[in-house]
């Protein structure tokens, strides 16, 4: 077999350099810097720093507020991941049955994907506006005096709803193309073998969607943990006060508002470890199975 190759090592190296530089400057360098500063206590007024060893980490463990935020982050991620996957799957299954107008559906849903998170957050603010927001009125119908940015539960609910709404299109597109890649004859064979449509869905369709679903699960957890920053920032209107927040938001808050760079760095190192863990988990499982052909 003939293999294309380079005569010297220099050209491929030169071609790789821009990419490597981007990774180094925007990832490794700040990551290394965060790791280093997580062992120091910065003077709030910028007059030098003192080495404190693992103290920034141990104090996280004892910090009640940190634990509360971590608890909320877990709950938030679970809810956002679950609802954005479940609703998207439901929509995809419905859209898959529609042959006419399927393109229109897809395009309409894709628009939401193109909205930047902070903009989604501001749209959320409109929806949850104290006096004119339709969703505020909706909750008021059920006797819930919905106060965005004031009431902890109200803000949390809004954060979940906006984050889910923003993420549904991506999941929908993946689920729909997953559904459409299942051979028609396999579904027809199942129609002859099984009378129940629900049974067919869970025993044939869903297992064949599993690779897609698993991939999306990881994507969605990552999204809920990290990419919802803009939504959260917009919805709490810059007033952390009594509002819920996720760990990523707290890193920003402690580091840039609270000027506790050491503590904030320690928190971001913890988050980096979490991402690493998720990635390893994903690769291991993807390698292991869930491919059928």
């Amino acid at each position: 077999m003939k293999r294309a190759g380079f005569d010297t090592i220099w050209l491929p190296m030169a071609l790789l350099i821009p990419q490597l530089m981007i990774i180094a400057i925007f990832f490794y360098w700040p990551a290394g810097w965060a790791l280093q500063s997580s062992f120091f206590l910065q003077d709030p007024f910028g007059f030098g720093s003192t080495f404190v060893g693992a103290e920034n980490y141990t104090s996280l463990l004892g910090n009640d507020q940190y634990k509360r935020v971590a608890g909320f982050t877990i709950l938030y991620s679970v809810l956002v991941t679950f609802f954005s996957l479940a609703i998207a799957l439901l929509l995809a299954v419905k859209a898959d049955k529609v042959i006419k107008g399927a393109k229109t559906y897809r395009t309409l849903l894709m628009w939401v994907y193109a909205i930047a998170p902070p903009v989604a957050g501001f749209l959320g603010i409109l929806f949850f506006d104290q006096s004119t927001g339709p969703l505020t009125k909706f909750f008021q119908m059920f006797g819930w005096d919905f106060k965005l940015g004031v009431d902890y539960n109200a803000t949390a609910t809004a954060m979940v709803i906006v984050a889910v709404w923003k993420q549904i299109p991506v999941n929908f597109i993946f689920f729909l193309s997953g559904l459409q890649s299942i051979p028609r004859s396999v579904r027809e064979a199942a129609m002859i073998d099984n009378r129940s449509a629900t049974g067919r869905f869970w025993q044939v369709t869903f297992p064949l969607l599993a690779p897609t679903a698993f991939f999306l699960l990881i994507i969605n957890i990552t999204y809920a943990l990290f990419d919802t920053f803009g939504i959260i920032d917009a919805l709490m209107k810059g007033e952390p006060g009594n509002n819920p927040m996720t760990l990523v938001y707290k890193v920003y808050l402690d580091g840039f508002r609270g000027n506790d760079l050491g503590g904030s760095s320690a928190q971001s190192v913890v988050l980096m470890a979490l991402v690493l863990l998720l990635t390893v988990f994903q690769f291991r499982l993807v390698e292991r199975r869930i491919h059928y052909t």
Partner: peptide
């Protein structure tokens, strides 16, 4: 079926 339509999983 022509392509057998077996359940791959």
């Amino acid at each position: 079926f022509q392509n057998y339509a077996l359940y791959p999983h």
